[in-house]
Design a protein around this nucleic acid. Sequence first.
DNA 1: GTTGATATTGATTGACTAGTCAATAAAGAA
DNA 2: TTCTTTATTGACTAGTCAATCAATATCAAC
Lengths: 194, 194
Amino acid sequence: MPKLGMEPIRRAALVKATIDEIGATGTLDVTVSQIAKRAGMSTALAHHYFGGKTQIFLAAMRHILAVYADEVHAALATADGPLARLEAVVRAGFASSNFRPEVVGAWLNFYVLAQSSLDAQRLLDIYQRRLHSNLVHDLRPLVGDRADQAAARIAGLIDGLYLRRGLQQSAHFDLPAADHVLALLRAELKGTTT
Amino acid sequence: MPKLGMEPIRRAALVKATIDEIGATGTLDVTVSQIAKRAGMSTALAHHYFGGKTQIFLAAMRHILAVYADEVHAALATADGPLARLEAVVRAGFASSNFRPEVVGAWLNFYVLAQSSLDAQRLLDIYQRRLHSNLVHDLRPLVGDRADQAAARIAGLIDGLYLRRGLQQSAHFDLPAADHVLALLRAELKGTTT
DNA sequence: GTTGATATTGATTGACTAGTCAATAAAGAA
DNA sequence: TTCTTTATTGACTAGTCAATCAATATCAAC
């Protein structure tokens, strides 16, 4: 059975299984057994490739952030001009892929973990900085010095609405979240928030 | 030792100990032992009064929501007119008492739990509905039909900024979060978000 | 002063968990 | 062929945890 070069395959399978398992249970309280079984291998092998439970979690979180970064990157590539780029960033944040239960579950548990794990805190910092800098980059030519504070508000609204939408499983009658953020963006452009 | 009428005292002690322990560890992954020891009693007694771990958690969450509701209520009592009332609601949300580590920890874990526990979901719903209705009540006389959507944006910004501020332990150079929300409120009043 | 409710705990049970390790098997190199 | 590296697992260890229970002590009522 032992084919060579299994390491990347096994690692990817474990990362995916971890995310799925977190999504299925809703908590970070998943065992290595559950993850390994879902990934189709023994717990010993999971330990062999990752060393420990914490490292498995961190790898899973890194993966989620990487996927999100790719989506934003792709959306930005086709956008022309600051305004279109801003809209692309906002819409990418609310893409339906981000609302799959396992992704929402991973994010929420990510927040919890960021309280106690320095590595998680660092990862979260990277995400927040990247979003902030993306926003400021395209807000600057539109609103000048107010870009920084406008970006803080827009980023906050993105996170807050994501939290609220991610948490309600029921169909919502409300405006799409992205449109709410774009409404705030409009106000920022008119300078009425100062 | 056994004095009568201990039940409410023990229950309150356990609720407080639970919140403190969640704040100290950062996770919901606290044991009944830890909670009971912190509350100065045996684990058996904790089970005796609450039945199980889940019920202890729910009682703790109910307590946090009740305290928050009281704060909002008190802030509203001294506010005169819709605008002052809106400001009071916003400022109450960002009162420093809400940023104590154990409160932030409880909230984040509350969000996680709301994914899998129907009771937690219900409690969260109550909080969200109450905030929304508080906002709409005082926005209506100011912006009319736009009140509902404006409230959704403001509530989202409150939650999002709370999340971001609660998560960063470092001192922040940025604008106070409440002022960001008030900036959005100003834009809503001028009708520039539509 | 007996009965019954309340308060309280130490000890125990049974289930589960992260991580280790020795053993096995294939693949490639020498 | 023999040796080394990679892949893989079953069995095991040592520990933890929620929940139960029997036992004990106090108070109130009758």
